[in-house]
Design a binder for these strands. Structure first.
Lengths: 116, 116
DNA sequence: CACACCTACTTGGCTTTGTCAAGTAGCATT
DNA sequence: AATGCTACTTGACAAAGCCAAGTAGGTGTG
């Protein structure tokens, strides 16, 4: 099936979240996404995301030699990126809550806020 | 902010899920989406979804007079649509699980099978 | 009847973003 | 030098949501 549309917009936040955990580079991010279950992300999908994020100042880039291949571009999150990610998490949460209601008819009672 | 990308692909499934609950028409679906928290969906967004769903035989259409306006197009889900929706739910679940892991670092332990 | 105002659906052009396929390039092994 | 890994780039494309404007039936007011 076609997950492309379901991925839209989500991927960006996921990539940003991976970078937030620590400086990393494209190929490694691909591995992280795969580990989390996003297995069909190709390089031609990821790299444009990285470029866009960089262009929008949400991440920053540093070039460094790899111990076993060509130069890597190491990315780290910026202040602006961290803020954007916070905002993204909130928007994602809200939308997925709506989707849960509509898709599963959960009235969202079963949340993790058991501490009132 | 721009929720357009986050909505992509999700909306289709949500609309289908609303129709699955019972025959309904565009304007009413808009209300259901709003009730669930999807408040910014305009007519120009919803109707093309309905058209597409119909074209793909996932829903079927019946015209009937409205008690207070122009003709309504009542939609109901087809067998094919129900199957598609089941598949959609699974794909959505999988992707949102991945997103949860990446976004919140939930290792997906907190599932609803606590009786395991 | 003319007009305004709801309800209800339609359409065209635009933008964003993921996908595929092919390409460039450094380094190690043979 | 040829192969094959790692690593990043690029161009053409398609899907789907968004906005704005348009069409049309019905009711109430004068």
């Amino acid at each position: 099936m076609d997950n492309a549309q379901l991925l839209k917009g989500i991927l960006e936040g996921c990539v940003l979240a991976v970078i937030e955990k620590g400086e990393t580079y494209g190929y490694e991010i691909l591995g992280e996404l795969e580990k989390a279950g996003l297995e069909d992300i190709g390089e031609g999908t990821l790299y444009p995301v990285l470029t866009r994020l960089d262009k929008n100042k949400l991440i920053q880039c540093r070039r460094a030699k790899s111990p076993l291949g060509p130069i890597r571009k190491y990315y780290s999150i910026t202040q602006e990126g961290a803020e954007y990610l916070g905002d993204f998490r909130e928007r994602y949460r809200r939308i997925s809550k709506s989707a849960d209601i509509l898709l599963y008819d959960n009235s969202s009672e079963m949340e993790e806020n058991e501490n009132g």
